[in-house]
Amino acid sequence: MTASTLSTPRDSVKTWRRFKYPQSLIKYGIMLIILVFIAISIQYLNIHLERVLTMFGRLGNLFANRYYPPDIPYILDSEYLGYVFETVKMAYLGALFGILLAIPLSWFASFNMTPNKRFLYPVARFLLMVCRAVHEMIWTILLVTILGFGMLPGVIALSLFSLGFTGKLFSEEIEAINQGQVEAIQATGANPLKVFVYAVLPQVRVAWTGISIYTWDAAFRAATVVGFFGAGGMGWYLRRTVQQVESNRVAAILISIVGLVIISEVASAWARNKVSTS
């Protein structure tokens, strides 16, 4: 008996596999499903795969012949720079309003701290979800149809965008706080507002500051294009030049957008770093 078990060591020298029999089947099954889904989608969306190959030539052509000498003097024009300044202002106003609205809403929408689980919690959750689910461009278009052209719909659209963006992150931070401090403040007989101010806010302050800076960055990115649908700022120039097929100017505007976004990103990374270390 023992001899036979010792004499058959070959069973145990099987090649090692990360996934044993049933799991490996599931893995390949999922891969197959994904591939079939991709094939069906390509068929359904009517994509001509042969066009994929010619795409690079056409993209190269687009950049080399139509976009290439970007009309740099156009973006250095004082009128355009004025609109850039407006865009910056729109972005930070939108981010600021969004963050200010997100403070109470994220408090209501955090499961552990919400003052009223029956009513306020679902309502706040739903509001945040709608703000986040509807893309900022759709907000812009809707607000432009209601309020007309100008900066106001842009600022409101960016506020809603920032509200959805920060609300979720803020409430996630609240849900991760240390309950001990909350209990300590509650034990003094404090009402929910006081608990929020003295037990929750000090714990999330640093994280929220970082998120707020990041929100400003994200709002600025969105602000560069809300004007495309008539809500003020440099996006309006983009629309005008795209529609008049002034490709050199489009290229110049794109360069200005990329440059500004990179500047804002570097600034926000620096500021976030400063906040988290201090």
Binding site: L45, N46, H48, R51, L254, V258
Partner: peptide
């Protein structure tokens, strides 16, 4: 950086100009 800094609307405009209308530029 380039990918993150350009908004999807702008990418859409570029690709619609390059490969024509349809779902493909959206992808």
């Amino acid at each position: 950086t380039l990918s993150r800094s350009v908004h999807e609307i702008v990418w859409g405009l570029i690709f619609v100009a390059a490969v024509g209308l349809g779902a493909f530029p959206g992808i």
